[in-house]
Design a protein around this nucleic acid. Structure first.
Lengths: 219, 219, 219, 219
DNA sequence: TATGAATGAGCATTCATTCAT
DNA sequence: CATGAATGAATGCTCATTCAT
């Protein structure tokens, strides 16, 4: 099982009000994450969540006005945590300051970092991927984060690398797609599609980085 | 909208009994595909499907015993069509007979072919990806097709290429993951995440192939 | 199993139009009797009857306008056959002509005769008893037969016996109730409640007659 | 109408948990009893019951998981109450302690007692008789009560009377059948088949007892 | 704050009946 | 005559949400 304490931290830290969660709220969130991940939002019932959380049905609605608000309270802090903070802190250093192996170093940090995060929050990852398609609220939140924060920083970095002749000539959007496909493809296979295989995580991370690096290297 | 006639063909051809669908069945399938793709299986109601199909609700259940059977009747022929037939016909020729650029040629055929298929069946693709997680029946069907048909043939081809010194040293499973991540990452971005962007499909296909080719080439 | 041919005869002979049943009609009746007896009228579906009868659903409604008409076509001829004909033929002879042991003789003939009939038509008996409560049509038909035919003849016989000092002083209605309770109690136990016990029918019939005879004898 | 308060007591006292019923539950039970008795279980709809009970349909299912559970909650306490307690308390005293007219005394108590009970619970009696045939759960419950409690005690009493030379030579099972046929035949006629006749209950009870007594007396 | 009984709209499914073939 | 696809009202049951305690 994923360590739930870490997951709660994830959810806590980005709660809008930054308020500590009450014990009941924690129980509700834990139960909701497990059940949403297992059966999907639409097939989960609030009564089942209440039962698993050892809480009365009404209690859920005291903390979250609707079932959907409960979902959003789970997903958006995770999305922000999963995408944003990494870029905020690492892009500058890795790519701009340390010169030659900038991309590889960036990728390694990115992958290892997100890998750990996904490992600790696999059910949340599952929920995000499964529910994004159906909830415009989530898509908007994601686009906001992605288009306004990640993509521009990513592009800046890529342009920088291109100038140094380190990158294949390819539109930034395509490069970003390749990288994300490879990273997400790995994480999804590792934690969602086949979590029970005997994974040699270190090696697979290396392979993935090698693959991307060669795939994108200047010819 | 995707050309529904082609989609119906897709569904028809692989129906076990190879029987032509009645007009009402076609209407039901069309409506179900659209609605399932839009809101997801669990959030779609049979009454909505019936209304969109201009059919009485009872009529759905005359043709499909349950709502789930309707889903399966939609998804499994698609899954078979999407994965199986290509490999059956192309692997041998492309990889084993034509010597040097075997992999590239294979990838190009694979991608173009699946691209067209995904283009014609985007909503079906969406449904498969969205529902696989929740329906063991679908997973089983997929595993059957993937583990027993695709994976072995894929491996055989990769081993052949490795012997010829054309491939990076990496476990087959990892290579296959890289390739599929890149291909599916492209198709999903193209048809599901951002279908409304101005895509230059030819170029993107080329980029994707280049990326994979360089990523996997013998160093 | 009960001999269905005899049951069909039962149903045929009293059909209002006295017309022979077509083979399809026979199949439908046979199936309907079995299913009504097993699950009750309200829980039986015409589609199940059609399936068991190897007949299209529509065919049932060609012969019987509604499901209820099918029930009535099954029950009323049976009811008539079960109650009426015996009395018509036997009362006079047994009771009025043969002097001393009139009642016993009558009871013996009554019981043996109805016993055979019930044996051959156990499912029909079951249906009548189960459905009478819910269908006023059946009740009316029964009352007609019972109040207008059976009761008066029964009373006449009882009065005759009373005059001869052979019968306990008790209202006719009560006497008739005792007799019918005993007879029906036997038949219901024998064929409906516990048909699988090892019954010694001859003996049980004798016991039942003895019981009634002593119960009603002049003190 | 039967006095519903007494019926509720009947249902309450034997509820496993011996808990008082909430007012809504009472309304539901009252409505269900009336409707089941009138149209039979299979032809009664939960929406009709809810309407008659002045309760939302969902409320029924909060208290009784399924429609069938509602039926069982109605029938089994009644069955237990109807059969068991009497025998527990009376057999010993009546038959074994008071010597000569043991059987008559027993029958009188039995009949009067069950008569009052049936009078107060006529609709329940109706439901039991009508539904027993279709619900194995009810049959099992009945057999348990009858075979394990009533029949043995009955037999013991009959053997005791036989030893004293008070009883006709007849298998116990047959004797029991005669008695029950007569008693049930009376109650069913009185409360179900023809409740609207002008019954002189005292007299009819006496007749019935006389009938049984003479029918079973040592010759 | 927490509870859980109550609600009623909504759901998948069944079914008697009709009707074009 | 016989068929069986089509119907749509009705059914048992679920569930998010409310609210009195």
């Amino acid at each position: 099982m994923t360590d739930f304490k870490k997951m709660v931290e994830t959810l806590e830290q980005t709660t809008e009000k930054d308020r500590k969660l009450t014990p009941k709220q924690e129980q509700i969130l834990k139960a909701a994450v497990e059940i949403f991940a297992e059966k999907g939002y639409a097939s989960s019932s609030t009564s089942e969540i209440a039962a698993k959380a050892n809480v009365a049905e009404g209690t859920i609605f005291r903390h979250y006005k609707t079932k959907k608000e409960l979902l959003i309270s789970i997903v958006t802090p995770f999305m922000t945590k999963f995408t944003l903070p990494f870029f905020a802190s690492h892009f500058a250093k890795e790519v701009f300051e340390e010169p030659p192996e900038g991309l590889e170093s960036l990728l390694r940090t990115l992958l290892k970092n997100r890998f750990e995060f996904a490992k600790e929050n696999a059910p949340l990852l599952r929920i995000v991927i499964q529910e994004m398609a159906f909830h415009p609220e989530l898509q908007e939140n994601f686009q906001e984060v992605f288009l306004e924060e990640i993509f521009p920083k990513f592009e800046e970095a890529l342009n920088h690398l291109k100038e140094k002749g380190k990158l294949v000539e390819m539109p930034n959007a395509s490069i970003i797609r390749m990288i994300i496909s490879s990273v997400v493809g790995f994480l999804v296979t590792r934690f969602i599609i086949a979590p029970d295989l005997n994974w040699e995580d270190e090696k697979e991370i290396d392979y993935t980085i090698d693959f991307i690096m060669h795939g994108l290297a200047q010819k």
